[in-house]
């Protein structure tokens, strides 16, 4: 447990592939130093990030690629999600007032909020005007 992890999976943007991503993250998180009580939440945060890409990045076109890379050691669990779809910066999404959200019956817009609730860092970069790069980090051990 807690050994260095370097793994990557590539899926296309059909939502039926979400379970593959969850299984990939689940296996990695179980081999990592992420505490048991945090593991399901980390899987959820990645699921939310990838689901956002699937739903929005390729604007309805299927077959778009999404790469998920996990790097982890005793100090952090880091997930890099890359796609070549439409630019989308989650940093521009404001956290919701959940009561107002429910009153308005808004079904969407909670994924980024969940990512921020769960992970210690949510960073976005649009590299070379072509690649969305979303990095999620959970700090572990003494760095928590």
């Amino acid at each position: 447990m807690g050994a260095a992890i370097h793994r990557e999976i590539c899926v296309t943007n059909e939502t039926e592939n979400l379970h593959k991503v969850r299984e990939f993250v689940s296996a990695a998180v179980q081999d990592s130093a992420v505490p048991r009580e945090e593991q399901n939440k980390v899987i959820l945060a990645v699921d939310e990030a990838v689901a956002n890409v699937m739903e929005h990045a390729y604007e309805g076109t299927l077959g778009g690629s999404i790469r998920v890379r996990i790097e982890s050691d005793e100090r952090r669990f880091e997930v890099l999600i890359r796609d070549h779809g439409r630019r989308f910066d989650p940093g521009r999404i404001v956290d919701p007032d959940i009561e107002a959200h429910v009153r308005a019956g808004r079904k969407n817009g909670l994924g980024v909020f969940l990512m921020r609730q769960i992970m210690d860092k949510v960073d976005y970069d649009f590299r070379d005007e072509a690649e969305n790069r979303l990095t999620l980090v959970k700090f572990l051990g003494a760095d928590r």
Binding site: E48, H101, R106, K107, L110, G111, F113, L114
Partner: peptide, 15 residues
């Protein structure tokens, strides 16, 4: 398992 998309169904329905 539930994600925000699943919870969103109930958010949309309760009102």
């Amino acid at each position: 398992y539930i994600s925000s998309a699943g919870a969103g169904v109930f958010i949309g329905a309760i009102g």
